[in-house]
Each structure stands twice: as C-alpha cells, then as structure tokens.
Measured scan of single mutants.
Amino acid sequence: MTEYKLVVVGAGGVGKSALTIQLIQNHFVDEYDPTIEDSYRKQVVIDGETCLLDILDTAGQEEYSAMRDQYMRTGEGFLCVFAINNTKSFEDIHHYREQIKRVKDSEDVPMVLVGNKCDLPSRTVDTKQAQDLARSYGIPFIETSAKTRQGVDDAFYTLVREIRKHKEKMSKDGKKKKKKSKTKCVIM
C-alpha cells in the first residue's frame, strides 16, 4: 500500500485542523484551538488504489514558523489553505509557496490551493482571484467548507493525484537520464 505524506499549511484560523478532522473523523470542530502540530493517518481508496494518507496539520501562528522547514522537508505534497473571508490569509499563500519551493529546492512541488469556509456569506476573496492565482502557479484550486464537508475529500484526493503525477514524471525523467548515460565512448 502506497503511503502519501501530505502537509496542510496556511495562516492561523483558516480551518486547516477543521478540514483535516472532517476528512479523518467526519465531524466539524467549530471551536478554535490553535494547533502546534498534529499528525493523522487514514486509509482510503483513490482511483481504485488503496493508500495510506499521513497528514500533518501544522501551526499557522507566526511564533511556530521555525518548525516549518522541518515538516516541509518531509512532506510530499501540500494543501495551501486560505479562508475566503480573510484576504490576508490569501496573500500569505505566496509566502508559504515560496518557502516550500526553497526548502524542497524545487520549482515543481505537488500543491493544491484550497479556499476554505465557502459556506460563509462574508467572502472577501473572489473565486476568480483564487483561480487566477492557482493557474499562475500551475496547481489545482478547490473551494471547501469544513463545516458542510463540501470539497473536503476532493481537496485531499486531488493532492494525492498531483503527487502521483509528480512521481510518474520524475521516474520518466530518471529513465531518460539513465538511457543517456548508457551511451559509451570508444577510443581507438
């Protein structure tokens, strides 16, 4: 069974824990209790493949930012979460993405942009803004509501699919490099 290491990042209060708990335990946590770091595991079937999701729910508070490099190193894919009623959390996505790329030393890291709290009427981040940002990053965008469960499975499952595509691409690139290195030079 394939294991996928997913990391949920975003500013404090955007609903990272609520999304994760909704996926794992099928219930909505409405009281806000700032996370330092929590880890969850769940076995699911995605596109006919049974897999184990190892999900790291991270601290959004700035005082825990020193811990970010460590979990970013171990993560295979990242859910970059903002709240649709919090423009600052949307603007912060850029910083999370840049930090992930720096730590992973790669421009090509599996990510999904997630606009959470889409059940709320007080939207300050337009869907088109988020779609445009995701398009500019070359990553999928999904709106979710941890409260109603809308888009929750889709967000995590899409990230797994992005990781699969990335692994497939990397193995193809690896095979191309191996083929090239088999060419021999004969000096007579």
Rank of each mutant, 00 (worst) to 15 (best):
T2R: 14
T2P: 12
T2Q: 15
E3R: 09
E3W: 06
E3I: 07
Y4S: 12
K5E: 07
K5G: 08
K5H: 09
L6S: 03
L6G: 04
L6I: 14
V7K: 07
V8G: 04
V8S: 04
V9A: 07
V9H: 05
G10C: 06
G10L: 01
A11S: 09
A11Y: 08
A11E: 09
G12Q: 11
G12W: 08
G12P: 10
G13K: 08
G13P: 14
V14F: 09
V14Q: 09
V14I: 14
G15D: 00
K16G: 07
K16Q: 02
K16I: 00
K16E: 04
A18Q: 12
A18E: 04
L19P: 01
L19N: 15
L19H: 13
L19S: 15
T20V: 09
T20E: 05
T20H: 03
T20C: 08
Q22I: 03
Q22S: 11
Q22W: 10
Q22V: 04
Q22Y: 05
L23V: 09
L23R: 11
I24M: 13
I24E: 14
I24D: 15
I24Y: 07
I24S: 08
I24W: 05
Q25A: 11
Q25Y: 03
Q25D: 15
Q25L: 10
N26Y: 09
N26V: 05
H27I: 11
H27D: 15
H27Y: 12
F28M: 08
F28A: 05
F28H: 07
F28Y: 11
V29S: 11
V29I: 14
V29G: 11
V29R: 08
D30E: 12
D30H: 14
E31S: 10
E31P: 08
E31C: 11
Y32C: 06
Y32R: 05
Y32S: 05
Y32H: 12
D33W: 05
D33F: 04
P34E: 08
P34C: 06
P34S: 07
T35I: 00
T35S: 06
T35K: 00
T35R: 00
I36L: 13
I36D: 05
I36K: 02
I36C: 13
I36N: 03
E37T: 02
E37D: 04
E37V: 04
D38A: 04
D38Q: 03
Y40P: 01
Y40Q: 01
Y40N: 02
Y40K: 02
R41V: 10
R41C: 11
R41T: 13
R41K: 13
K42T: 10
K42L: 12
K42A: 10
Q43G: 12
V45T: 14
V45E: 14
I46L: 13
D47F: 05
D47Y: 06
D47W: 05
D47A: 09
G48H: 10
E49V: 09
E49M: 07
E49F: 06
T50G: 10
T50V: 12
C51P: 13
C51G: 10
L52R: 15
L52Y: 14
L52K: 15
L52E: 15
L53W: 08
L53V: 13
L53S: 10
L53M: 12
D54T: 06
D54A: 05
I55R: 00
I55S: 08
L56F: 02
D57M: 01
D57Y: 00
D57N: 03
D57V: 03
T58Q: 00
T58K: 02
T58F: 00
T58E: 03
A59W: 00
A59K: 01
G60R: 01
G60H: 00
G60Y: 01
Q61C: 10
E62H: 07
E62K: 06
E62N: 07
E63S: 07
E63C: 07
E63H: 07
E63V: 05
E63L: 04
Y64G: 02
Y64S: 02
Y64Q: 02
